[in-house]
Amino acid sequence: MSPDTCTHETRPHDKLIVMANQIARFMESKPHAEGVAGLASHINDFWEPRMRRQLFEVLDAGDAGLRPLVTEAAPLIRRPGA
């Protein structure tokens, strides 16, 4: 992100990427396995299905911009029903 761009001008999916990455950066300071589990359970506990669906859209499209921990935790994240 360029330092002079305004983040809210971007698309909603970008916002989710920022949020997921923020959680990832917090969880990265933990032992790896705990971090992966922590990230997944955080998203399961706090993200409404619409948000998780959009996250999976990003993941399914090749996870552009997501930190590796998010990708790694993806199998543990509950995929919402259609």
Partner: peptide
């Protein structure tokens, strides 16, 4: 003013 910087832990 702000953008969407949020607290990952608590939204």
């Amino acid at each position: 003013l702000p953008g969407i910087q949020g607290d990952g832990g608590a939204g």
